[in-house]
C-alpha cells in the first residue's frame, strides 16, 4: 500500500465503529474516486471542526451561539430535556414530540471510567435553573425531563440529578422505559418487560 494511503487509513481507523478493513476500503475509495469529492470532504471536515463550538446555554454542538434550538422562540423555555450526548438531542428532536429546550451533559456518571459529576456539564445545568439570573430566561424553567439511558450509568446520573435539582423548586421527571412501539411483547427480554411493568400507567 502506498504510504499516504496507509497514513490516511490509519487515521480513519481511529474513528469509532471503523475497523482496519473498513478504514482501508474507505481510504482506497477516497483516493481512487474523483479528486473533487475528496477535496469537498476535506473542506467540509475542516469547516465543521473550525465552526463547531458548544452552545453557551445548552452545551449542544453548534456553529452559532446560542444554538438554533436555544434561539428558536417557538420552543417552550419552561421545559428542559437533559441528555447525555449531542446525538441524543438529534434522536429526540427527530421524533418531534418534544418542543422544549435541551441540555447536554456530555457523558454519564461512571466512577469505573473516572467520570465524576465535575466532569459533566452539571454546573451549567444548575445555573440555568437558578432563580436569580442576570438575563430573563433563567427563571423560566419549570420542568426538567431526565432522558438518560436505562443502564446503570444512565440510572445513576438521573437519580443524582433528581436529588440535586428537586430542592431548586423545579419538577423533575424521568422518561419511561420498556417495550418499544411496534415491539412484540413475546420478543422482549425479561428485564425490559419487568421495567415496563414497573413504569405502568393507569388508563
Amino acid at each position: 500500500m502506498a504510504d499516504p494511503v496507509a497514513h490516511l487509513s490509519r487515521h480513519l481507523a481511529r474513528l469509532p465503529g471503523i475497523g482496519e478493513k473498513t478504514a482501508t476500503r474507505l481510504a482506497f475509495h477516497l483516493v481512487t474516486g474523483p479528486a473533487a469529492h475528496a477535496r469537498e470532504l476535506a473542506a467540509a471536515l475542516l469547516e465543521a471542526v473550525d465552526a463547531t463550538q458548544l452552545c453557551s446555554a445548552c452545551m449542544n454542538l453548534t456553529d452559532t451561539d446560542p444554538c438554533r434550538l436555544c434561539a428558536d422562540a417557538s420552543r417552550d423555555p419552561t421545559t428542559l430535556c437533559v441528555v447525555a450526548q449531542p446525538s441524543d438531542v438529534m434522536a429526540i428532536d427527530r421524533a418531534g414530540q418534544f418542543r422544549g429546550r435541551y441540555h447536554v451533559l456530555h457523558g454519564l456518571l461512571s466512577p469505573l471510567d473516572g467520570v465524576s459529576p465535575d466532569d459533566l456539564r452539571i454546573a451549567e445545568l444548575v445555573r440555568r435553573l437558578e432563580p436569580a439570573g442576570e438575563d430573563g430566561e433563567r427563571a423560566e424553567v419549570r420542568e426538567v425531563i431526565l432522558a438518560t439511558s436505562a443502564g446503570v450509568e444512565g440510572e445513576t446520573t438521573a437519580m443524582y440529578l433528581a436529588r440535586l435539582l428537586k430542592p431548586l423548586g423545579v419538577a423533575v421527571s424521568r422518561i419511561a422505559s420498556g417495550i418499544p412501539v411496534g415491539g412484540e411483547l413475546e420478543y422482549s427480554d425479561q428485564a425490559t418487560i419487568a421495567r415496563a411493568l414497573e413504569g405502568r400507567s393507569a388508563l
Binding site: 456518571l109 461512571s110 466512577p111 469505573l112 473516572g114 465524576s116 459529576p117 465535575d118 446503570v152 450509568e153 440510572e155 445513576t156 437519580m159 443524582y160 436529588r163 440535586l164
Partner: peptide, 27 residues
C-alpha cells in the same frame, strides 16, 4: 463495580461522594 470504584476514587470529594454512594446503595 461502580460503588467500589467510587470508594477507591482519591478524588472522591466529601461533598459528592456520599451523595453518589447513596444512589449506588439504592441501586
Amino acid at each position: 463495580r461502580m460503588r467500589n470504584a467510587l470508594l477507591r476514587d482519591p478524588r472522591g470529594s466529601p461533598k459528592q461522594g456520599p451523595e453518589l454512594l447513596t444512589i449506588y446503595d439504592g441501586q
